[in-house]
Design a protein around this nucleic acid. Structure first.
Lengths: 206, 206, 206, 206
DNA sequence: AATGAATGAGAATTCATTCAT
DNA sequence: AATGAATGAATTCTCATTCAT
């Protein structure tokens, strides 16, 4: 399967500042379109218009429509990964419950900042061009969780670390996302954080 | 937002057998297209072709493209609901763990039977026309779970039943789906069922 | 090299009369556009407009833009082939010079009837989609000429029939075409026919 | 039809050596693109890239895209003209057949050296911007041939020199080109040269 | 002179939907 | 009821050309 290259990099030199700026403008525009009008409004011309550049310019930086979403995805996945890594590898000693809560809260913050974006990344991103990207990111996150579980295994219940990491990662992520998407009755910000913390602690520790 | 009515036939009017059959043929065709070629191939003419009817006929039964997906969704959601209801209201006494496992296994069966369909319903369905439908179904499922938790609350840890029902429902559903979509290394059918059972029991009981 | 199919045939049945008519209307429109505004004006929307149908309809019958030119090509090549075949296999006895003149005149008639079309077919057709088509047609025409030369070889000078057929075919065709395209000073309809007849007779006979 | 001027630099103004060099670099790049990737790849940015200059620079020397092809055409036409002139006006006495062969061989050499280029010039050049250019060149070549025929008329058959010059020029040129483009079965380098020589001699002399 | 980012008109193509038969 | 030809708005993407730096 030949995969089209996605970012159009200037032939060689370290991207000019102007270029960088334009790429940014376009991505921000894409987010705005997404947040305001949803996935189906994310047409190349709409994004260009909102970004205040011409379609041509957009295509100077993104090989095709999907490349825009891909770029957004990568940016966001990167942020989430970093957050996870930072917290899980933090040297400050915390109780397991404190750590679980910290992770849940950090994720909460990420999603709350741009719920529509995450909705799209989770929902549409999954069906988009490179399913590998999402799978790979999930694998990477699960890997981080698993690494942590391995270190902490003494304090945990006996279990398949692979599976446990996978399950807790998916559970927390999906519940959080669904919370933002569905605003379920009887659940609020505090409660969801509490419950997901509880879920994590109870599922993993003895 | 005015919502277009979706099925052409009046809700209650006893539908002709031929009509019923045609509707069925179309829905099965849609599933086949979905399973074989994915969401983007689900065009009205493709579905009509596979169903062996003309586009015109298709439009005789479905007001618009989205109505087809909606109908698929409803059918599948109905099945899932029934399953959940049957198990949770079953008179046979089971241990909590047995019941949890029974539900997890039933869900597993449902997904395994038509993974592509569920993928589409979960992933694409969510972004499709009537987000209410999904939300409504989720609400209904969560409601069933909550009803059960209420009855069983004596044996459970103290908690917000609303939130707990929401969290456990989303967690099990998402983990299962992700399992089928991503085939994570180190996890297999048995393990995923075991772990989700464990998750459920640990999260809810003392 | 996978070659896209070009004509969109109605699934099975012998094309409806309406369909046939529409195809014709589109091809005629294409010729008109070509004759009036040249190759670069031959856009799908222009052709559709001139044909009085919508772009959608055009695409119902032609898989892509090139398919239209291909169809024109085939039609015209067919005509030329038939003409050549009819004349060369004609039972009426003619002198070699009479036969040569008959062929040259027939070709002259073909080109004169739609010079712009032939210009495009010769000039643009060559660079278009299926170079094979043109080459194949040339090969077929050369084949017809060669077959004739073989039969008549007793009356001809000794030579490579392959090469002679190729050379005389290309020479007559190109000179005729150039005559229409360039309207060279000092040459008129009668003279060009005379000279190409002369060329043929002198080149082939003793 | 107002015709845009094509070269940026004033016709006679002594061009700077650097300018000359840049023009050359661009033309060579254009040929390389043409030979390697064909007509459709001949975009201004592609040519600039291969030439190692910026599009801006390209436009400094060529008023528009077509001007590049025009320039190529002129260069090549110039060469062909010179060749023809040199041979036809050569003082060394040769038999008619020897002369005919010399011209055919020279033309053969020209085409063989860069078949793709000549293909493009013949096929695409014709449809490009200045049809006058090609017509004018053809007229000039035909003029050279005619001048020669006039001088040699004593040894030739009686005929319209205009027409004969036109016909023989087009015939030899087209057959040669088609030979390179179509690689017809049963014809090789030697044979094609022989036959075109034969064609010329037989057509023109008694 | 050179650069190359930006422009935007315009081209091909798709597909949900309608409606005359 | 069924058919399927016709519609045309909408979308993606290209590329010749300009112009501020």
């Amino acid at each position: 399967m030949t995969r089209r290259s996605t970012l159009r990099t200037a032939r060689n030199q370290p991207q000019q500042p102007r270029s960088r700026a334009t790429v940014s403008v376009i991505l921000e525009a894409a987010i705005r379109v997404l947040e305001q009008d949803g996935w189906d409004a994310l047409t190349t011309s709409r994004v260009a218009e909102v970004a205040g550049v011409s379609v041509g310019t957009l295509y100077q930086y993104f090989a095709h429509r999907e490349a825009i979403v891909e770029a957004l995805q990568n940016r966001e996945l990167e942020r989430a990964s970093e957050m996870l890594e930072r917290l899980l590898k933090s040297p400050e000693p915390k109780s397991d419950r404190e750590l679980a809560r910290a992770v849940v809260e950090a994720l909460f913050g990420l999603y709350k900042a741009a719920p529509a974006l995450h909705r799209v990344l989770a929902v549409d991103g999954l069906r988009l061009a490179p399913p590998e990207t999402v799978v790979a990111f999930d694998a990477r996150s699960v890997g981080l969780v698993k690494a942590f579980l391995t270190v902490a295994s003494a304090r945990l219940r006996p279990m398949s670390l692979e599976a446990a990491a996978f399950v807790i990662y998916q559970s927390v992520r999906a519940s959080m996302l669904a919370y933002f998407l569905e605003s379920p009755a009887g659940v609020n910000d505090d409660v969801i954080v509490d419950e997901l913390t509880e879920l994590t602690v109870r599922y993993l520790t003895t």
